[in-house]
């Protein structure tokens, strides 16, 4: 690919596309794409503390797709979750945006959680993180994998501004909704 074509693919002249992935999301793919992202950030000389936050938010967004996403395709024996994650840079800010389908049943609790998170100050986010980390009562009820709802709090903790999100019905997908989460790391 010539550099001219690569340049044309960038969304805005002030933005630099860093990484994007769209397709099936499994633990193996989280690992492979995560390593690619790390390599890309290293190649771009992104400062290590920023690169760690970007990687952390990327992994949490990807696992969020796996844990809350609706399975796609009925033919496969193995359940497949699909989604996309893009990472781009605008000046000294790094944007991450994930998109995935979630069920109408899963939508209200996720919306409630994200809305509550958006209203928290950085100090409150840190307090909530520590509360959920140290209080054993959150283990069972908040996450099937023992995360106690810490994933979204981790994304919020890494972010320089409140997490933005959107839930949009997808008429062609039996009442499922598209969840978009946008976060900014600096």
């Amino acid at each position: 690919m010539s550099s001219i074509v690569a340049y044309r693919m960038m969304p805005e002249s002030s933005e630099r596309e860093i990484f994007s992935y769209s397709g099936a999301v499994s633990a193996g793919i989280v690992g492979a794409t995560g390593e690619s992202l790390r390599a890309r950030l290293a190649a771009l000389d992104v400062e290590s503390h920023r690169a760690r936050k970007i990687f952390s938010s990327f992994v949490e967004l990807a696992y969020n797709i796996i844990h809350h996403g609706e399975p796609e395709g009925a033919r496969d024996v193995k359940i497949v979750r699909c989604g996309s994650i893009e990472v781009w840079q605008e000046e000294q800010r790094y944007h991450l945006r994930s998109r995935s389908l979630i069920s109408a049943v899963n939508a209200p609790p996720i919306e409630q959680r994200l809305a509550a998170l958006r209203a928290l100050t950085p100090e409150q986010i840190r307090f909530e993180f520590r509360l959920r980390l140290t209080n054993l009562q959150y283990t069972v009820d908040a996450s099937p994998t023992g995360g106690a709802g810490l994933g979204l709090l981790t994304i919020a903790r890494n972010a320089v501004e409140p997490i933005d999100f959107e839930l949009v019905p997808v008429p062609s997908h039996d009442g499922r909704l598209q969840l978009t989460i946008h976060t900014v790391v600096q």
């Binding site: 760690r52 990687f55 952390s56 992994v59 949490e60 696992y63 980390l133 140290t134 054993l136 283990t139 996450s143 994998t145 023992g146 995360g147 106690a148 810490l150 994933g151 709090l153 981790t154």
Partner: peptide, 16 residues
């Protein structure tokens, strides 16, 4: 090198 959120929770249990 990196600890994700659910691992964080498991480490909390380990250290407790």
């Amino acid at each position: 090198a990196y600890v994700n959120s659910s691992s964080t929770r498991s480490l909390q249990q380990l250290l407790t």
